[in-house]
Design a protein around this nucleic acid. Sequence first.
DNA 1: AGCATTCCTGACTAATTTAGTCAAGTATGA
DNA 2: TCATACTTGACTAAATTAGTCAGGAATGCT
Lengths: 138, 138
Amino acid sequence: MKLGTKGRYAVMALVDLAYYSKGKPLAVTEIAQRQSLPASYLEQLFATLRHKGLIASTRGHQGGYSLAREAETIRISEILEAIGEPIETTRCSKTSDTGCVGTKGTCLTHALWAGLGQQMHQYLNGISLADVCERRLT
Amino acid sequence: MKLGTKGRYAVMALVDLAYYSKGKPLAVTEIAQRQSLPASYLEQLFATLRHKGLIASTRGHQGGYSLAREAETIRISEILEAIGEPIETTRCSKTSDTGCVGTKGTCLTHALWAGLGQQMHQYLNGISLADVCERRLT
DNA sequence: AGCATTCCTGACTAATTTAGTCAAGTATGA
DNA sequence: TCATACTTGACTAAATTAGTCAGGAATGCT
């Protein structure tokens, strides 16, 4: 149950973007340096984040990336999902309930994992980029 | 951010143990069959759970495994930690805060991941094997 | 026009982790 | 003594992670 670099880097980069961009777009290399992340890897991540509509790009000189929406409206849960680091606590889901303790149709542990996933999602969905920037984190 | 089979199987097996063992020890193969888990893999997991003191073994005929303590006192968080599936949301921790947004000493995202980890731990620590068996899961 | 800058894309890969299998024991009760 | 069941360690195939690298395309500045 660990958070990979993909999700971690994506959030770090977007927080940096929200924090240091004053209207102007920021270059990948600038962000990568400040956060000490591999630039070429970050480029990859930004590509998918752009396709998902979380950030916008400006090409050429003085170009770079900027948030597609207000920092207040971008939730951490969105970023993780967009980058392909979803919260997966359950494996038996939706259709069939096989591989479970077959006591009463639905498995005993399913509710446990589903509850955990919901808990995590709720937390990450309740926090925006702006919240992280301004250190409003309970 | 996904839960591996190791942690999942361990909890499933201990829930099964708590649910079906009536004082008597249960054989690994029995549990594995009922939960449709690979028996040889489960054996491995049970070995480490025993070393960590969560379960006890009885060898020979009519032998098997049983919970080392009351199901009410064994928390899910314990099982996951014992089996080697800890909750790792942060990477920069304890000693140095390198690799973070260096605005004020501690990084901006650190608090976020720490909060997530705490959230998860709190949830899993608040649930015992008995709770899962009796479907008391909020 | 030309050049530096920056995004953009896809292919590739080394290392680690996961999810097991397999074989050979050892202890115990019937 | 034999079947049952735990016990241990070595091994491995496949998937995932965490990147690198090379080349191309758009844009603004001089």
